[in-house]
Amino acid sequence: MGAYELTLVAVVSINVMLALGLNLITGFCGQVSLGHAAFFGTGAYAAALMAAAGWPLPVVLVAGGVTAAVLGLLVGFTSLRVREDFLAITTMGVGFVFVGFVRKQGWLGAEMGLTNIPDHGLGDIGFILMCLGLVAAMAAISAHIKRSWLGFGFAAVADDEATARTLGINVPLYKLAAFVIGTFLAGVAGAVYVYFTRFIIPGAFGFTVSISILSMVIVGGVGSLWGVIVAAVLLTLLPEFSRVINDYKLLLYGALIVLTMRFAPDGLAGIVTSLSRRLRRSET
């Protein structure tokens, strides 16, 4: 693999991590978040400060995750107060406030960003292996959660909050758990991003990033593990394969969001499921 391919693998890995995190919150637990980039950014800034202070890589990764999860817990509390479209615009607001705040903070480098980030010391191949390992771990965690009692609780909350409450399911606890776990993953992705670019600016964590991650989850099929992974990989790679697509990347993401919402609300996963069902029916 050349340097370009290695870069691609790293970018894809980071996006898959972000999509998996958002899929936990929005997919499994049904809490629409339009501010995922804020948690990504929180993790990245925390990691950048820690790394610059000389902490070793594993500590920095965990610190990025934990810092993002603390903000995630706070934002999670808002999901106890507002729901559906209002939660969506509250989380969107969190995203804008995050960028607006960081832009003006001298100790976070303000508009110029942070640059003095040390090398990860793993070598190119080692770093890629770490990225892939983290993606595999996060996918495994997601798959495990989906099958566990936690995933069952998430699904109940996503499906019908009022009914879940009547059945004695502790709805607030599940929502907070989804936010904490999902934003932890985003924070770890932020830390990986810091080691990858070794340079961060507030603009890298803006609203369009939140929307890009959301489009991966939506196009893949909200709540579907493999659908979201496939969509994250495809949507990251498509712009790389063609200059034309790269120039119109946002147009593509926007159009895919509109078309999925309008014609295929269950995304790729839904299309594949209904196709395979039709195939099976024609066989019998």
Partner: peptide
Amino acid sequence: PYVALIASIGLFICMEE
């Protein structure tokens, strides 16, 4: 209601682009 909101954001991005 969030379905229309997300679709609307998608449409807005398309329009801007």
